[in-house]
């Protein structure tokens, strides 16, 4: 989560600074040549420590994970796990045919999408509402951020308590004559999850939308006002184009974060999870740490990694976020 937001902040800053500057593609000969010069003498060796760290904490575990997904690794072979029997793609076959993996993928993706679809307008509305200075704006802005700074565990615990049968929410609804039924189990639990997720994650969209709004030049507002644009037209044709970048970034990070979110469903519903909220991370966790099928769960995790990587890759190609400084340039 913290890594997400950190990266997000950085990328946004990068993006906004690009938006503010004249486009680097502009045929500016001197700029090009200077860049070429600096490229030649770049001290690439300084990347070595970071590179080594990346290998140790990302590449090695990733390779180990892929290796594990080919092993019949369980509590009986855990102790000498490297010599566990190699069974090729059997784990993948089992994950896809004999486990609830596909159902879990469907639940994870659909819930993430639904939560995103609601949080984006909420975030924009929040950002637009606090864009112009008014008395107490700083306070409102801080209040907006509360769900975002609370640890996921706390959020889930509080909501779980409120959603207990016969607890606060039930008695509130009861007083207006609604018998809502079960929140933490059964079909409704899926919507409970989405509701809590929206509550917890909309400030993230709000933050990015706010950063997008800040980058709208004052002149643009003035120009559109002179042209007689009313608020909706101004919003639609002047402000929204500025928000496109930050918001697609928010969408991407939010989706990844929701799909990977373990704490929220785990604390809300516990394990074994009701089948309506047996999400991907929960399924992987139970397979690993309750049933001890490490090989199988590694295969599940690998499948989900691919699943996440495909849209991520397409998106990065499309918006070229991966090399924002030199659009189109390959080095």
């Amino acid at each position: 989560m913290s890594t997400d937001s950190l990266t997000a902040g950085k990328s946004t800053r990068r993006k906004t600074s690009r938006a503010a500057k004249p486009g680097p593609q502009s045929p500016d000969g001197t700029l090009r040549r200077r860049k070429g010069l600096s490229e030649r003498n770049r001290p690439l060796w300084m990347l070595i420590p970071g590179g080594l760290l990346m290998i140790v904490i990302i590449v090695v575990p990733l390779l180990l994970g892929i290796f594990m997904s080919g092993l019949d690794l369980d509590q009986y072979s855990l102790r000498q796990w490297v010599s566990a029997p190699f069974i090729g793609v059997q784990n993948f076959v089992e994950a896809l045919t004999a486990s609830p993996l596909l159902h879990a993928i469907w639940l994870s993706v659909s819930y993430s999408l639904l939560a995103m679809v609601v949080t984006i307008p909420l975030g924009i509305a929040g950002a637009v509402a606090t864009q112009n200075a008014f008395k107490g704006r700083a306070l409102i802005r801080s209040i907006f951020l509360i769900p975002y700074v609370l640890p996921s565990f706390v959020v889930a615990t509080v909501w779980r308590t409120m959603f207990q049968p016969g607890s606060v929410i039930d008695s509130m609804l009861h007083s207006v004559g609604i018998d809502a039924g079960l929140w933490l189990n059964g079909p409704q639990s899926y919507w409970t999850l989405i509701l809590v997720q929206i509550w917890a994650s909309w400030p993230f969209v709000y933050l990015l939308a706010l950063s997008g709004l800040q980058s709208v030049d004052h002149e643009v507002h003035e120009a559109s006002a002179l042209d007689g644009a009313l608020w909706w037209n101004k919003l639609r044709y002047v402000v929204f184009p500025y928000l496109k970048g930050p918001l697609s970034l928010a969408f991407l990070i939010g989706m990844l974060h929701h799909i990977n979110n373990f704490t929220l469903p785990f604390v809300l519903f516990g394990v074994p999870a009701p089948s309506d909220v047996e999400l991907l991370p929960i399924l992987t966790y139970v397979t690993s740490f309750q049933s001890f099928r490490f090989g199988l769960s590694a295969a599940m995790a690998f499948i989900s990694l691919i699943l996440i990587a495909i849209p991520l890759f397409i998106y990065l190609r499309a918006v070229k976020l991966d090399d924002a400084e030199t659009p189109g340039g390959k080095k």
């Binding site: 990328s11 990302i58 990733l62 994970g65 594990m68 990844l256 690993s288 990694l305 996440i308």
Partner: peptide, 14 residues
Amino acid sequence: MKFASSAKFAAVVL
């Protein structure tokens, strides 16, 4: 971002 997702992946599996 890539870092975050892979790191989480690694944390879950490994």
